[in-house]
Design a protein around this nucleic acid. Structure first.
Length: 216
DNA sequence: ATGAAGATTGCCT
DNA sequence: GGCAATCTTCATG
């Protein structure tokens, strides 16, 4: 049974740590892949400069302004997808939790096939270690933007994890964000090997016109 | 219409 | 640890 919508009808900062240990599964023609979440990040709405919702509603982030319990999938760096769970925020909407990593608990062969595309090899712990890897392993792309993860009929569903298992949760600054980097809204399962390595925001170098120095 | 940056990853040394 | 790959999105004129 999928997680109830009420679970997501809270602020992302409250939802994020509760998502650790929960399961995200995606059913396709190729089969089912499921992961247990081990690392997430909370993004507030209009007040959070690191959030896509900071500058208001656009075509891309429209799903974030909709009802909670839906997937917000976006494309970035010309090649990667990332997936969020939409929650409520101040003003009623536009907060979300970015899913950064998880452990494969079903469909490992299919996940590995998607990640390697037939060549190379990937350790089990690296299959969904990182937000773009997680999407690739689960086969998530833009067609799932807006998918209702609380619906039994949806191909992408969020399920409750093992209730008996208690996890130790650690917190820290969010990864790769250029603003509000001091706010500890990243949550992960302490000691879990599938949690991604922390990387500070790295500004990209730009090509300088007339590149070589005229001095000499 | 155009320019700049991006919630990343993989491969190189 | 550092940089290339690759394209969508948003702000500005």
């Amino acid at each position: 049974m999928p997680i109830s919508r009420d679970f997501f009808a809270r602020h992302a900062v409250a939802v994020a740590p509760d998502l650790l240990g929960c399961v995200l599964e995606h059913q396709t023609e190729a089969g089912l892949v499921a992961i247990e979440l081990t690392e997430v990040e909370a993004y507030a709405g209009r007040s959070d400069p690191a959030s896509h919702a900071y500058r208001g509603r656009t075509q891309r982030n429209a799903v974030m302004f909709g009802p909670p319990g839906h997937a917000y999938v976006y494309f970035t760096y010309g090649m990667h997808f990332c997936v969020n769970m939409v929650c409520l925020g101040e003003g009623g909407s536009a907060s979300a939790v970015l899913l950064r990593a998880g452990a494969i608990i079903a469909g490992e062969d299919l996940a590995r096939a998607r990640r390697t595309r037939g060549a190379g090899s990937v350790a089990a712990r690296d299959l969904a270690r990182g937000p773009a890897r997680l999407c690739q392993a689960l086969g998530i792309d833009r067609s799932l933007d807006g998918a209702d993860v609380c619906s039994q009929d949806s191909s992408l569903r969020a399920e409750a994890g093992h209730p008996a298992r208690s996890v130790k949760i650690a917190t820290g600054p969010r990864v790769g964000v250029s603003s509000a980097a001091d706010i500890p809204w990243r949550f992960w399962v302490d000691g879990d090997p599938t949690v991604s390595a922390y990387r500070a925001h790295t500004p990209r170098l730009r090509e300088v016109p007339g590149g070589s120095s005229p001095r000499g």
